[in-house]
Design a binder for these strands. Structure first.
Lengths: 238, 238
DNA sequence: TGGCTCAAAAATGGATACAAAAAGAGGCTG
DNA sequence: CAGCCTCTTTTTGTATCCATTTTTGAGCCA
């Protein structure tokens, strides 16, 4: 069921996100088609989709270029995500969540809690926390009752947020990072409580604060990465 | 410079938005290509773009269908728009607006003020108010300093918002409508003041309230339209 | 030597041809 | 009569092919 075009799209997306393609570099239909040994048709489809995702830009009459991401782009993306996510939290609180949703959120929280209590090596801790964190956020976004929120989130600016996911952890200071994860975890706990009590305003405010913490942290991190030219890897976002 | 695909896209979009195509109706590459006497290539491109805009849905193996819009869809669209717009207002307030932006907003407010003070026929009043209102909102969205907001807004769910624009005015009660426009105008005035003082929280709260008024009104209106089957025309949204 | 023009090459947009997969219809069989 | 199987039609994905536009480069002229 993986069409040629979709395969191309996901491969090139991964290349862009992981830095395999230089920002500002040009991509043309023919070059891409030749590179993957397919015809121009799937290459064209893939490029159109990637442009819709915001990973590449179309230059009139001169093909596409890989978008280069600035600090401002990342801040903007986080701000928009925060707005959408806090709306989702508010909506979910006001309409009430299903038992299945509550179970999922609780499960995510249990996972992060046990991870933070244990003394597993740092990298495993990070991966586990990251996975549970993604589930928590995606559940709220996707199951909040406003499908347009998820629809919107899915098709905007994959690039800044994807970059973010791979950047946001400072392995040089694990102790501080662990503290940060604990703060995030506690915010999840509060969020779940607000959702249970169907307190829309509180859920919204808490989610906003939660996202804002990400923003501040990301800003700090982006400065570090962009100015020093070093790159730190590891999973985990807010 | 009007490519075949773009032309197709805009024509079909207009057809969908104005009701020229029945919600739920199927639309296929071949049918569209035959109808406009072009090949499948631009038809495919146009359909893909329309799907990204949320105007049509892809049914696996069974072409596309025109999306049918529910009350919930419209409420969802307004909620998302409110979230994005209040973020834009906050951002613009915090970063400070340029003189050009301030002049544009002031001009829009002057226009609505003079319209509300005059005794022109109702329809003219509506058209003028509507135009000035659109300028006010678009200026804030587009010039707020976060380009992703406008980018996001442009490519999500054209349908519910477009429908909204043509629905939101009750010509059977002009007096009450005039009062409503005055409330909207006063909110614009307050908003401009908050922007001038660079009070992000106040601008955000005011814009949220402003959008929320639209939501309540639209809800009332959608009920009327959908339950009575009647349709009221006229420009003007909150 | 520098600028201009024209031509060759490349790239994009659109048209069509071809193949494969899926949905529908209709008949066949238990 | 019901369920299943098959054949046809529709739809979709991909490969080329043609035309238009753009770029680039070489050669010519001032």
């Amino acid at each position: 069921m993986h069409s040629s075009a979709q395969h191309l799209q996901s491969v090139v997306r991964r290349q862009i996100v992981t830095g395999g393609r230089e920002p500002g570099a040009r991509i043309s239909e023919v070059a891409l088609a030749a590179e993957f040994d397919v015809s121009r048709t799937p290459a064209r489809t893939a490029l159109a989709s990637l442009e819709a995702e915001g990973l590449i830009e179309k230059r009139e009459g001169r093909g596409y270029t890989i978008r280069s991401i600035s600090k401002a782009d990342i801040s903007n993306a986080i701000a928009v995500r925060a707005a959408l996510e806090s709306l989702a939290a508010k909506t979910l609180a006001e309409t009430g969540m299903s038992d299945a949703v509550e179970a999922t959120l609780l499960s995510s929280i249990s996972t992060t809690e046990s991870i933070l209590e244990s003394d597993t090596p740092v990298q495993e801790l990070l991966d586990g926390y990251h996975a549970a964190n993604v589930i928590f956020h995606e559940t709220i976004m996707l199951k909040c009752g406003n499908d347009l929120i998820a629809h919107t989130f899915e098709r905007i600016a994959m690039l800044p947020l994807a970059k973010l996911g791979s950047l946001v952890f400072d392995t040089t200071n694990p102790r501080r990072e662990r503290m940060r994860l604990m703060v995030g975890h506690s915010q999840h706990v509060i969020l779940l409580d607000a959702l249970r009590q169907r307190d829309g305003a509180r859920a919204e405010a808490m989610m906003r604060e939660h996202s804002h913490a990400t923003l501040n942290y990301a800003d700090l991190f982006v400065r570090k990465v962009y100015e020093n030219g070093t790159r730190t890897t590891g999973g985990g976002k807010s």
